[in-house]
Design a protein around this nucleic acid. Structure first.
Length: 481
RNA sequence: CGGGGCGUAGCGCAGUUUGGUUAGCGCGCGUGGUUUGGGACCACGAGGUCGCCGGUUCAAAUCCGGCCGCCCCGACCA
């Protein structure tokens, strides 16, 4: 049975204006809030729990693959940022400066880190002497500041939380393998935990991280047909090694520069999650991400109250070791109010238990996806919940995957590509000759940007969509966040 | 950065055009009672530097100037 309802809505319809819908959901689901400082948000406990889900899963994978956490300073001397030319050019316009300490003007200005290569590489120079010191595999969980002109909760804020991985390797191959290893971990996070399918590959030179030789990326598609970069893994080559003079003595007694990588995902993923799965009732959380997988709502009514409450509590206790459970026994709210609130907040499974259920030894299971109601016997509830959570996770991924696939199309002509990109019909796959002028032409005509060059897929005889020369790579385009 | 909109109680708003006693309404909040299977009801009550600064005036939420912040569209941006 599906519940039909016309009711007051706290949020606009998603299809009407996704931006307004997005902001309303982030605020009303109590994920985040504005602060007195422009561009800086507060992440509320329910939102931070989503970040913790990402953190705990990733951190486990990082440790399993030999990485360790470390910590480096918040502030970086200006002269260090200057050492890698492209790097400083990319970030200088966006950094916040510290110019005074207490009463004294600083001899050298400090930047609040926009990313930490410029402070970590100098430390590598102290720590790495021999090939026996390699690889160095570390990361830090921290926040960075980039002074943004316009901001959106989670999607673009002046300060954001992330981890930044930084590794140093003996050979080019080792460093590239590291990038690909991390890319795979990110892909698994997105697809298996967050239920968001992604395209993976590399960025064209114009879109690379400032100072990188190659940038691997994961791109997700939002319901408005725009792409969003979900994570990056940068092959830095020896650029930073040379800029910061990080060398080691190899087994052949030759002094060589290290090969380095850096990689990150940020709290922007939470914005991606909201948009990817939410609906007109609010947030929809994949079970593996949900702070509460199950909410139990007792239906209280007069004389049966004690029995209903006791049954609800007993059920909560039974479920606790196995699921993340919230028993909503607040007396001030009616069941209907709670249903709406927990739907707005995206809890995957709701269990209703009232006098009639207690009498018949059952509970009612309601899934956030579809809002179908099923009565199951109390004894069978844990198994039924486990099944429901599993199915919801799969269903959410499948739905998103169908959307991605149906909004990823190949275009053989320039007109066709431009039209689809302007209309935001998702990813458009075109052949490219790898000449900058062809990329620029498509950019100007479409208003979109190249998002990703797939890794294992090469044209065979196709032509560049702009100039008609032989295509050397495929490139997926879209308008982007 | 450009265009548009907004800022009055925790939230949503009216009042501003045409200045005038003590600034209103709904929701929410507190207390008491009745309620509770899809956003309950009654009664009483608490809650305001009208975004900030300055100006005009006997008098400013209201008029004038400046500033700040947020939202939407666009530009820019790893």
């Amino acid at each position: 049975m599906v519940v039909e309802r016309e009711t007051v809505r706290d949020i606009p319809k998603k299809a009407d204006n996704m931006s307004e819908w997005y902001t309303a959901v982030a605020l009303k689901a109590e994920l985040a809030d504005y602060t007195p400082i422009r561009g800086f948000m507060a992440i509320r406990p329910y939102g931070y729990a989503l970040w913790e889900a990402i953190q705990s899963w990733l951190d486990r994978r990082f440790k399993e693959t030999g990485h360790m956490s470390a910590y480096f300073p918040l502030l970086i001397p200006e002269s260090f940022l200057q050492k890698e030319a492209e790097h400083v050019e990319g970030f200088a316009p966006q950094v916040a400066w510290v110019t005074r300490g207490g009463d004294e003007e600083l001899a050298e200005r400090l930047v609040v880190r926009p990313t930490s290569e410029a402070i970590i590489l100098p430390m590598y120079a102290k720590w790495i002497q021999s090939y026996r010191d390699l690889p160095v595999l570390l990361l830090q969980w921290n926040s960075v500041v980039r002074w943004e002109k316009s901001t959106r909760l989670f999607l673009r804020t002046s300060e954001f939380l992330w981890h930044e991985g930084h590794t140093a390797h003996r050979t080019e191959d080792d460093a590239d393998s590291e990038c690909r290893l991390i890319l795979g971990i990110y892909k698994q996070l997105l697809e298996e935990i967050m239920a968001i399918p992604v395209l993976v590959g590399t960025k064209p030179p114009s879109e690379r991280f400032a100072g990188a030789t190659n940038t691997y990326t994961l791109e997700a598609l939002m319901p408005d047909g725009q792409a969003i970069q979900a994570g990056t893994s940068h092959f830095l080559g020896q650029n930073f090694a040379k800029a910061f003079n990080v060398k080691f003595l190899d087994s052949d007694n030759q002094e060589k520069y290290i090969w380095s990588t850096s990689w990150a995902v940020s709290t922007r993923l939470i914005g991606t999650l909201i948009m990817a799965h939410g609906d007109d009732r609010g947030l929809v959380l994949p079970p593996k991400m949900a702070p509460y997988e199950v909410v139990i709502v007792p239906i209280l009514g007069k004389q049966e109250d004690p029995q209903v409450l006791a049954a609800a509590r007993a059920l909560a206790e039974r479920l606790r070791g196995r699921f993340r459970v919230r028993l909503d026994d607040r007396e001030a709210y009616t069941p209907g109010w709670k249903f709406n609130e927990w739907e707005l907040r995206g809890v995957p499974v709701r269990v209703e238990i009232g006098p009639r259920d207690v009498a018949s030894g059952q509970v009612v299971l309601v899934r956030r996806t579809g809002l179908t109601k099923d009565a199951v016997s109390t004894d069978a509830a844990p198994e039924a919940i486990a099944t429901a959570l599993n199915e919801i996770q799969q269903e959410m991924y499948s739905r998103a995957k169908v959307y991605l696939d149906s909004h990823t199309t190949a275009a053989a002509t320039l007109d066709e590509a431009v039209e689809r990109l302007q209309e935001r019909r998702g990813f458009v796959k075109v052949g490219w000759c790898e000449r900058q002028e062809c990329e620029d032409t498509l950019r100007e005509k479409s208003g979109a940007s190249p998002r990703v060059i797939p890794l294992d897929e090469r044209p065979s005889g196709e032509t560049c969509v702009v100039c008609g020369r032989p295509a050397t790579v495929w490139m997926y385009w879209a308008r982007a966040y």
